[in-house]
Write a protein that binds this DNA or RNA. Structure first.
Lengths: 239, 239
DNA sequence: CCCTCTAGGATTGTCGACAATTTGCGTCCC
DNA sequence: GGGACGCAAATTGTCGACAATCCTAGAGGG
């Protein structure tokens, strides 16, 4: 798999990715980090000139983001960055809880637990580094990378696909409510305990910890709601 | 919500849906029912003339289906209907299990259980009708409608969104492997028991039945694999 | 007989322009 | 002065054509 020593590694075709994908990724990052705040209107013409491409590929990128749920499209009106309401925070974490529980189960039962635990520990190390440098953004990024790695470890294409949008939305929550952070040691500790349970193959502890992790986040980001009790606040667009 | 008596109901704008959405839905149905068998190449030019639209909107529809995972795109090669391998069957049901478990939990804890149970019972009635008419296609459709209704009942935008593709893929599985059906009475019975547990608010029974339901399906569609034991067959594209 | 290189066809990727629709503002009438 | 109508600007939706890229078939050489 790895190239022989002395050869140039990674000399993939000049443009391996479609331009629409590149644009989509850039916009995704911008939305994720808060550079494009929720509610912002995105004009096709303006963005097209900013990216130096025609409206065709740009439109495809937008459509992609709309189907991912990051943008909402109003016909003949324009495209807007979604804004997350309290109900959405609950919804995001409920969905994440479902996905990550399944991923954890598959990691516990099917995969190489020690190898997975090692990968996860590397992301926790990143968290610790970011914490020591007092960089909240990097801390959140590392946090998300932990969960992304966990889901990747499940080996499920579909869990990975479904989680992508959820993690971006999670990042939006964290960006929007940066003030509600818990103590960093606690934050790192929670992940460490999760890894230990995974390494031990202790299903019950791992799942319990994961639930608690999500529950904590929800109560911090959307006080008054609870995943455990199924008490969802009203979400206007939910029918 | 409902229009006052005497007024014309549902006089929505002449074309509320975008053309790309219409095309996407049509192709989705065609893929779901097997009219477009897995592996089929879809030429943009040909489809554009068939739908009587330009390649622009059609391209957007395709891109949408690609991001949903129903089509796979090979750059400068073409678009193909995905073909499901045994590993995908496992993956689909593992993901469905995660989603529907979460939906069931929210229905159990948060919603109006009796109302939800009534809705679900209507879909089971459809299943019974289809069974009595010996219509396997309608039976599968009603089966899927049950699960779709369950997920809708959760009230979670994100669970609904994530489940859409999974249910279509499930339909593809059922279409491709029509021979492996279980007894229809058994199939209806499983759903009925599920509804009863929901109505009673019996969480443990409901979740156990749901797991068993998925496990049954997997063992019927992909013999030799098991959701419970986390024994996933190798899926080439999973890395 | 097999391998390589080349030319052809076909398909996707990209672009610029035109058409349809909505929104906001100005004007006119009451 | 208030309300309704109509116009105009801006934005999205759609289209047809051109350019870039890739697969395939065939000829030529070893």
């Amino acid at each position: 798999m790895a190239p022989p020593p002395g050869m140039l590694p990674e000399i993939e075709p000049v443009s391996r990715e479609s331009t629409a994908a590149v644009i989509a990724r850039q916009l995704r990052d911008a939305i994720m980090t808060g550079a494009l705040p929720p509610g912002t209107q995105l004009g096709e013409t303006e963005l097209a000139s900013r990216f130096q491409v025609s409206r065709g590929p740009l439109r495809e990128a937008m459509q992609h983001l709309v189907s991912e749920g990051l943008l909402r499209s109003e016909r003949h009106r324009g495209l807007f960055v979604i804004d997350l309401e309290p109900g959405d925070v609950y919804d995001i974490y409920a969905a994440r809880s479902a996905i990550e529980r399944a991923a954890m189960l598959r990691a516990l039962r099917g995969g190489d637990r020690d190898r997975i635990a090692d990968v996860l520990e590397r992301t926790v190390a990143e968290m610790a580094t970011a914490a020591s440098e007092d960089d909240p953004g990097a801390l959140s990024t590392a946090d998300l990378k932990f969960h992304e790695a966990l889901i990747n470890a499940s080996g499920s294409k579909r869990l990975v696909r479904m989680a992508r949008t959820l993690l971006i939305e999670t990042r939006m929550c964290l960006t929007a409510l940066q003030s509600t952070y818990q103590r960093v040691e606690e934050r790192v500790e929670e992940h460490t305990k999760l890894i230990q349970a995974l390494r031990d193959g202790d299903e019950e502890t791992a799942l319990t910890l994961l639930d608690a992790h999500m529950e904590d986040a929800v109560q911090r980001l959307a006080p008054g709601t609870s995943l455990q009790e199924g008490h969802a606040p009203p979400v206007p667009g939910n029918a």
